[in-house]
C-alpha cells in the first residue's frame, strides 16, 4: 500500500509538501522523485485534485513524488527577503535538497501545470539534479500554424452553437468552461523571447533531460502537437514527447480527461525512468 506523509522543509521548515511513496515491493529502484509544483494559486492538491491523482498513479507505477506548496501558497509559510521572481526556484531547490537529505534521492523530475510548468522550466534550468520534466500547458508562442488551425474553429458549427447559447443564458465569454479559452498571458509572465526559450529547451535537451510536453485544447495559445516544433525548432523524439489533449480543458475538469492525463504521465515516467531506461541513457 502506498504511503503519504507530510514533509516540512526550507527556511524554518516553513514549506509544506506531501510525499507519496509506493509500496516497497513496487518501488522502481534508483528512479528520480517527481516534484510537483502549484498550478496558479491552487494549493498542492492541484486543480480538481489533479496532483493527488498524479501522485497516486505514479506510486502505483512504483515512483515517489513530493507535491509542494510554494512559499505563501497553500499550507506553506511566506518566504521573506526574496523577490517573488526567485521564490519558486528557491522553493524547488529547498525541496530537492530535502529529498537528497532525507530520501537519498539524487535526481528529480519537475512537474507543473500552467504557471507550475513555467516554474518547472525555471527550476530545470537552475538545478542540475533535475533529470526530467513534465510541462502541462506551459510556455507557448503563437506561430503561423497556430493562427491557421485556430481560426479553423470558426468553421465548426459547435463553436457558433456554443457562442449563441452562452449569449442566451447569460454566461460571460471570457471565463467560460470551454469554447472561449484562456491563454498563457492570462496566467503568468514569461518575459522571455521565443528564441531565448528555444535555446533554453535546447540546453535542457543537451543536458539529457527527458521531457514531456502536454497541451490541451482548452489552452488558447496552442492548436496542435505540431506547434511544438514550430515554436522551439525541436522535433519530438524518444527524449522529447509531445501530446495534445483534444477536448480537454486547461485544468482537466472532467474525470476522464484527468485520468487520461495521469495515465499519459505515468506511462511516460515508467518508460523513461525505469532501471533499463536509466542505464541506457544516463542523465
Amino acid at each position: 500500500m502506498m504511503q503519504e506523509s507530510v514533509c516540512q522543509f526550507g527556511p524554518d521548515n516553513g514549506l509544506t509538501g506531501i510525499l507519496t511513496q509506493p509500496n516497497e515491493s513496487d518501488r522502481v529502484a534508483d528512479a528520480p522523485v517527481a516534484l510537483i509544483l502549484n498550478a496558479g494559486i491552487v494549493h498542492n492538491i492541484g486543480p480538481f485534485r489533479l496532483h493527488v491523482d498524479i501522485a497516486r498513479q505514479l506510486a502505483e507505477a512504483g515512483f515517489s513524488s513530493l507535491r509542494i506548496d510554494l512559499s505563501g501558497l497553500g499550507d506553506s509559510e511566506t518566504r521573506t527577503g526574496k523577490s517573488v521572481d526567485d521564490r519558486a526556484v528557491l522553493d524547488a531547490t529547498d525541496a530537492i535538497d530535502f529529498l537528497a537529505e532525507h530520501l537519498s534521492c539524487g535526481s528529480v523530475v519537475v512537474v507543473g501545470l500552467c504557471s507550475g510548468a513555467f516554474n518547472a522550466h525555471q527550476a530545470a534550468l537552475a538545478d542540475p539534479r533535475v533529470v526530467g520534466a513534465s510541462f502541462f500547458d506551459g510556455i507557448v508562442f503563437r506561430t503561423t500554424g497556430f493562427y491557421l488551425r485556430h481560426y479553423l474553429r470558426y468553421a465548426k458549427p459547435r463553436f457558433w452553437r456554443n457562442a449563441i447559447k452562452r449569449r442566451v443564458i447569460g454566461e460571460p465569454l471570457a471565463s467560460e468552461a470551454a469554447g472561449e479559452t484562456l491563454g498563457e498571458s492570462e496566467f503568468f509572465e514569461v518575459e522571455k523571447t521565443q528564441a531565448e526559450v528555444s535555446q533554453e529547451i535546447g540546453g535542457l535537451v543537451d543536458r539529457g533531460l527527458k521531457m514531456l510536453f502536454v497541451y490541451t485544447e482548452g489552452y488558447d495559445d496552442v492548436a496542435s502537437a505540431g506547434q511544438f516544433e514550430e515554436m522551439f525548432g525541436i522535433k519530438p523524439s524518444d527524449q522529447v514527447q509531445v501530446e495534445y489533449f483534444k477536448e480537454a480543458e486547461h485544468t482537466f475538469r472532467l474525470s476522464h480527461n484527468r485520468a487520461a492525463a495521469c495515465s499519459c504521465l505515468a506511462d511516460w515516467y515508467s518508460e523513461q525512468f525505469t532501471g533499463a531506461a536509466l542505464a541506457r541513457d544516463p542523465a
Binding site: 459547435r158 463553436f159 456554443n162 447559447k165 452562452r166 443564458i169 454566461e171 467560460e176 468552461a177 470551454a178 469554447g179 485544447e217 482548452g218 483534444k246 477536448e247 480543458e249 475538469r253 472532467l254
Partner: peptide, 11 residues
C-alpha cells in the same frame, strides 16, 4: 449540465 453542454466538443 451547463458546463458539459458548452464543452468545445460534444462530450
Amino acid at each position: 449540465a451547463r458546463m458539459v453542454d458548452l464543452w468545445a466538443s460534444k462530450t
